[in-house]
């Protein structure tokens, strides 16, 4: 994933989503399937989404991570995608995918420093459009697992709009938001400031450390996807039950 500054993490709206609770992605997918014109996207929506009351341990999931040229979805583009298939019980690397893509915007030097993907690599890489069919097939029927949905959701939506004139919506379980629910319930008060209590970091590496997950080097889309997948397993093992409905986690 791209770097996320602390200030970039906006979680206010996620609080209301928890209360809304029962996002019905299955129904939303039916609507979208009837509205969309693009055949691959239509097929994706027609594959459906799991019912909101499905216990989390029965939900097929894909952990997803993007490396991008920057953090503005309207200007920047995707450079690589990592996908790892998982269930609550097992993360299956056999079914992992990793693409380097040729972005439609310039690969800026500062982003190269972060994800290490070079100009010559992207020059040889395909455009997202060429792998779109395969990507959507992998995503079909699955719930995405990401760390900070602001990136994957917005970038894929924008990237598709640019390429096929239509955006995409998809259900995600955001491990960052799950951490935020625990550590960002209220703003640090006067007393916290007085005693210098820092906000707990909910970035991927710090969140993982809280669950005693090992340190992985960040900024490789596939490794980050794996890292988010493991984090979700740990979060559910610690704070939810395997029978928690997916609606308690997704958004």
């Amino acid at each position: 994933m791209f770097y996320i500054g602390k200030e970039d993490v906006k979680t206010e709206e996620s609080g209301s989503e928890i209360n809304a609770g029962q996002l019905d992605w299955a129904r939303r997918f039916e609507e979208l399937a009837s509205q969309t014109r693009h055949p691959q996207l239509k097929a994706y929506y027609e594959a459906g989404a799991v019912a909101a009351n499905t216990p989390i341990h029965q939900v097929p999931m894909i952990a997803m991570d993007f490396e991008t040229t920057g953090i503005d979805a309207s200007r920047d583009d995707i450079v690589s995608i990592g996908l790892v298939a998982m269930t609550l019980e097992r993360i299956r690397l056999r079914d992992a995918r990793h693409w380097i893509l040729k972005p439609r915007t310039d690969l800026r030097e500062e982003s190269v420093v972060i994800h290490g993907i070079t100009h010559s690599e992207v020059e040889a890489a395909p455009d997202l459009k060429r792998i779109l069919e395969e990507l959507l097939e992998v995503m079909a029927g699955q719930v995405m697992v990401v760390h900070h949905k602001g990136i994957e959701r917005n970038f894929l939506n924008a990237a598709l709009k640019r390429r096929i004139g239509e955006g995409i919506e998809f259900p995600v379980i955001d491990t960052l938001e799950l951490e935020a629910r625990l550590h960002r319930r209220k703003k640090p008060g006067f007393i916290d400031k007085l005693f210098g209590r820092e906000k707990v970091s909910i970035r991927l590496a710090d969140s993982r450390a809280r669950y005693h997950l090992p340190h992985y080097r960040p900024h490789d889309a596939l490794t980050d996807a794996l890292a988010s997948a493991e984090l979700l397993q740990a979060q559910v093992a610690t704070r939810f039950s395997k029978n928690s409905p997916v609606a308690d986690l997704w958004s």
């Binding site: 019980e89 097992r90 993360i91 299956r92 690397l93 056999r94 992992a96 669950y211 997950l213 794996l226 997948a229 493991e230 397993q233 740990a234 093992a237 610690t238």
Partner: peptide
């Protein structure tokens, strides 16, 4: 081997 690995998290005590 790495492409065949599966991963699972177990909380202490499980």
């Amino acid at each position: 081997i790495a492409t065949e690995v599966e991963v699972s998290y177990f909380k202490a005590g499980t």
